[in-house]
Simulated assay, not measured.
Amino acid sequence: MVFTLENRILDHHQILQKIKRMAFEIYEQNFEEKQLVLAGIHENGYFLAELLAKELREISPLDVQLMEVTLHKTEPLTHDIVISPALSSLQDTAVVLVDDVLNTGKTLAYTLREFLDKDCKKLEIATLINRHHTLYPISATYTGYSLATTLREHIRVVLKENEWNAYLL
Rank of each mutant, 00 (worst) to 15 (best):
M1D: 13
F3C: 12
F3E: 14
E6M: 00
I15P: 00
I15V: 09
I15A: 04
L16Q: 15
I19P: 01
K20N: 15
E25A: 15
E25I: 10
Y27A: 10
E28G: 04
N30W: 10
N30D: 08
N30Y: 08
E32P: 00
Q35M: 11
V37L: 11
V37G: 07
G40A: 10
G40S: 00
I41R: 03
H42N: 13
K54I: 05
K54T: 09
L56S: 06
E58C: 08
E58Q: 15
S60N: 00
L62S: 04
V64K: 04
L66Y: 05
L66D: 04
M67N: 14
E68I: 11
E68Q: 15
T74Q: 14
P85G: 04
A86E: 15
S89T: 12
S89Q: 03
L90T: 04
A94Y: 08
L97N: 00
V98R: 02
D99A: 05
D100H: 05
D100L: 08
L102A: 02
L102F: 02
T107D: 08
Y110T: 08
R113E: 15
D117V: 09
K118Y: 06
K118R: 10
D119C: 02
C120G: 06
K122P: 01
N130E: 14
R131F: 07
H132M: 12
H132F: 15
Y136E: 07
Y136N: 07
P137Y: 04
I138L: 03
S139N: 05
T141V: 07
T143A: 12
T143F: 13
G144K: 00
L147F: 08
L147S: 06
T149G: 10
L151F: 12
E153W: 13
V158H: 12
V158R: 07
L159G: 03
N162W: 09
W164N: 15
N165F: 06
